[in-house]
Design a protein around this nucleic acid. Structure first.
Lengths: 305, 305
DNA sequence: CTGAAAGCGCTTACAG
DNA sequence: CTGAAAGCGCTTACAG
């Protein structure tokens, strides 16, 4: 293994100089010729600085961790979200770890060891209470994704998304607009979407037509010329029940089926990832300042409708 | 930050003893009472050993990295693959890093620094030659996923998968079986699937009916009672062209559409992830031994057909 | 069985 | 402007 001492010897300087040059410290005056010699030596030897050496000295690992439930359905995420996190991490010169936590009786590696400077937590249903406690107690900087907390979270603005989608349909001339979905469950977004739909109708003086699919058949929506639904699953159920209307679907990624006519409202997964890292870096730098949560807008797809 | 010295002081032992106890070193004789005292002190203080301290001492980072192209279409992967990697890493008590590399003029953080003991590389088209060179030159242990190399790779057995799917249709009594796909391109799997299909037909003395979709219309397949295709995209094109047959689709994950009748052959993404980590750990332990590549079988879904 | 010491690779004051 | 020294948190021989 090549170490900074090898580079120093080859370049005829001290280890300190190697460190200063390779870390681009321009506040210290070092002749360009010396700098070049160091860089050449490093390249020639294939020197790769050992992250851990720096970490142990600086007290920062230079990594952040993306944390998921080991029950995958509790921590759904899209490639777009992961990409947002990777990009955000790269931007801050951080490595990104990915870990899954057992939901109970857990003592996961990522919490047991100090291996990351902060955590991005992604639970789309209730996170295990033990997790939040443990994080608070160990004072680990953390940002929650897809969770609408007062502080330290980023989430899609489902309320505004549903409201905008409904208004768009109204603007198109639809007067009888339905909503197909599940009964609002533990996750805030289910209630928010329904509320957004209702807000738009109320603002326009229209009547609501809601089919909660555990209880009602989509047939309740007969006569509607447009229907708002969440996820392709709901769309599929409505379709199979014989509903043939203009659909508006809130979903994470563009998708297609063969016959249906619909507009998609995309969840801002990439932006969520980016934003989560931004907030986390703030949090790492000042761990005691609560950060107001961010709601990010959904975008209609295709963007212009 | 709590360090091992704090635990040592609280437990009334030396730092060495703390290390031995917490790392479960049973080869050294330490009275159970002392062990318990150390564990209690660690818990009470919320001690989380600093990974980097150990890393700098042991020379191992305790992490492996999952490496992707920054052009996402060149490094497609499913959640199942990522889960396989996460599980595999956890099994070996490793952290998992995820990184994307620019394709050209690159000097990515993950290669520039020594932050992982080995790499899992996932390129579904040609990997940049500079990458393989760099890895070889820096002697970084690496395993390739979805790449059929003689050594150091794991990949789905597309040939056998296509062959088995075709034989299954033959066993069902189909006599005119088509193939819909793209012309074999740079990735080995495209040729392998076509070859597997052809092998099965030849073994059964049947004639081939191949539609390469850049050149031919799926209508070439008219009269076929079963069609083998790769990915839902191909299926969709065939469907839209009016083809109504039994389809066999090779794909990474279960998927559904509204009307079509098809059998899916699932790529073994989870197993690929697990296997890749196993091979990588071998490679890390003996970097100079080439590891014969592994081809993993596809599975029909539903499993019994 | 336990503790003091050395050392992993690195960076940062501090002398010169 | 550069080098010798100290120190980050940890683990591993080595004495006792």
């Amino acid at each position: 293994m090549v170490k900074s001492e090898d580079v120093a010897r080859k370049a005829g300087v001290s280890r300190a100089t190697v460190s200063l040059v390779l870390n681009g410290r321009t506040d210290i005056q070092i002749p360009e010729a010396t700098r070049q010699r160091v860089r050449d030596a490093a390249r020639a030897l294939g020197y790769r600085p050992h992250r851990s050496g720096r970490a142990v000295r600086s007290g920062k690992t230079g990594s952040v961790a993306f944390v998921l439930s080991s029950v995958s359905v509790r921590s759904l995420f899209t490639p777009l979200l992961l990409d947002g996190l990777i990009e955000g991490a790269a931007r801050h010169d951080q490595h990104l770890l990915v870990a899954r936590l057992g939901d109970e009786s857990f003592d996961p590696k990522i919490l047991r060891e100090f291996a990351a400077d902060g955590l991005i937590l992604n639970y789309n249903s209730e996170a295990p209470p033990a997790l939040a406690e443990r994080i608070a107690q160990a004072k680990i900087p953390a940002i929650w994704i897809n969770d609408r907390r007062a502080f330290d979270s980023v989430y899609p603005d489902d309320f505004e998304g549903a409201r905008a989608a409904t208004h768009a349909r109204i603007a198109e001339g639809h007067a009888r607009i339905g909503y197909a979905g599940w009964s609002p469950g533990p996750h805030y977004s289910m209630a928010d979407r329904l509320d957004g739909y209702r807000a738009a109708l109320e603002e326009s003086g229209l009547e609501e037509h809601v089919a909660l699919l555990e209880r009602e058949s989509p047939v309740v929506l007969a006569g509607c010329t447009a229907v708002l639904c969440y996820s392709p699953d709901v769309l599929k159920i409505a379709w199979q029940a014989g509903l043939r209307t203009k659909f508006s679907v809130i979903h994470a990624s563009p998708f297609s089926t063969l016959e249906q006519d619909f507009t998609t409202y995309l969840l801002p997964d990439h932006a969520l990832g980016r934003a989560a890292i931004e907030l986390l870096m703030q949090k790492i730098n000042s761990p005691d300042t609560p950060i107001p949560s961010h709601a990010l807008p959904l975008t209609p797809s295709p963007p212009k409708e």
